[in-house]
Simulated scan of single mutants.
Amino acid sequence: MRFGLFLPQGWRFDLVGIDESQHWPTISNLARRVDGQDLWESVWVYDHFHTTPVPSEEATHEAWSLMAALAASTDRVRLGQMCTCMAYRNPMYLAKVAATVDHISGGRLEMGIGAGWYEHEWRAYGYGFPRAGVRLKMLEEGVQIFQQAWRDGVATFHGEHYDVDGAICRPLPLQPGGVPLWIAGGGEKVTLRIAAEHARYTNFDGTLEGFTRKSALLREHCEAVGADFDQITRTSNYNVMLGASEAEVAQKFEAHAARLSSHMDSDKVEKQLRGFRDMPAFGTPEQVVEKLTALREQGLAYGIFYFPDAAYTTETIALFEREVMPALAG
């Protein structure tokens, strides 16, 4: 299994209590820690503007600004977003931005891309909130513009939602064939079909049952469009709540709940906590290894892991590095 690490950026109330002047040092110091090792393949940020699940005045740092900054301040680790919302930026403009970031990074960029879902954020920024079918069509058209721009250095595309005419993308990305595309989302009829046609990586449901189902459907879409299922790397995201003992897990869980409770009501806190408690990266190292091994046997090749305490301590990350990663690597 390969490993990516989410950096704290505020979106999930994970920089609370840290002075805003110290946010970038906190983010960049953690990125440099990862960059100096051979354990983690990549670091990731979320493409969001407001905190979730409720908007607040807590800072949320913008994803592509962070991409450029991280590209210039790291040397080895690959850089991704999970995932960029297609509609937040014109796709030709985004193709140009990504090509530039790929050069700054020396060819280390990944392009996570999806249709978007956070309605409050869409409306607050003036994007409206089109129905799901429209958002997915925008995703499909945008991906085609990316691929044409990165392959040919120029794109002409006349679609329902995007229209470009001789738009130049120079320099081309450093990576042959363009920036690797991660199609994020598990929509069974459309998103997985788009992934079958265009993705090098997918990112969907990380539970054993969900991952197995989505994988089977992805295989069906690949067969339908003539794509090689085995050439698509299947990935999932995991919220980590890890402790050396079950008592330590409970202690960390309570501390995280307390931090969230100052920003949202109890129902929303409970929903956020279920995203830890009911997922495979919750428990002692032995428990987490057992659950993730079962997923690896079903084809999970790459996990991206979120540590809610990463801005405050690297102890949980270090425990994961010592006790979980060696058992799953390779």
Score class of each variant (00 low, 15 high):
2 R>T: 04
3 F>G: 12
11 W>E: 14
13 F>L: 00
16 V>N: 03
17 G>Y: 10
19 D>M: 08
24 W>V: 02
25 P>V: 01
26 T>H: 10
30 L>T: 04
33 R>M: 06
43 V>W: 05
46 Y>P: 04
47 D>H: 05
48 H>L: 04
51 T>S: 15
52 T>H: 04
64 W>K: 09
65 S>K: 10
65 S>D: 12
67 M>H: 15
72 A>S: 13
76 R>C: 02
79 L>F: 07
80 G>K: 07
83 C>W: 09
85 C>L: 11
87 A>W: 06
87 A>P: 11
94 L>Y: 03
96 K>P: 09
100 T>H: 12
102 D>E: 14
105 S>H: 12
107 G>A: 07
115 A>G: 01
123 R>A: 00
127 Y>T: 06
128 G>A: 09
129 F>S: 00
136 L>A: 05
148 Q>R: 13
153 G>E: 03
155 A>G: 05
160 E>A: 15
162 Y>K: 00
166 G>P: 04
168 I>F: 12
168 I>G: 03
170 R>Q: 14
170 R>C: 04
179 V>P: 01
184 A>K: 03
184 A>N: 00
186 G>R: 07
190 V>E: 02
191 T>E: 01
200 R>F: 06
200 R>V: 13
205 D>N: 03
207 T>M: 08
209 E>R: 07
209 E>I: 10
216 A>K: 12
217 L>W: 12
219 R>Y: 05
220 E>G: 03
222 C>M: 01
228 D>S: 14
241 M>L: 15
244 A>W: 08
252 K>R: 15
253 F>S: 14
256 H>Y: 15
258 A>R: 15
266 S>M: 11
268 K>E: 11
270 E>V: 12
270 E>G: 08
274 R>E: 10
284 T>R: 03
288 V>C: 10
290 E>N: 11
292 L>I: 08
292 L>D: 05
297 E>G: 01
304 I>S: 02
307 F>T: 11
309 D>W: 05
311 A>C: 07
312 Y>A: 04
314 T>Q: 08
316 T>I: 00
319 L>C: 08
320 F>V: 12
323 E>Y: 00
326 P>C: 06
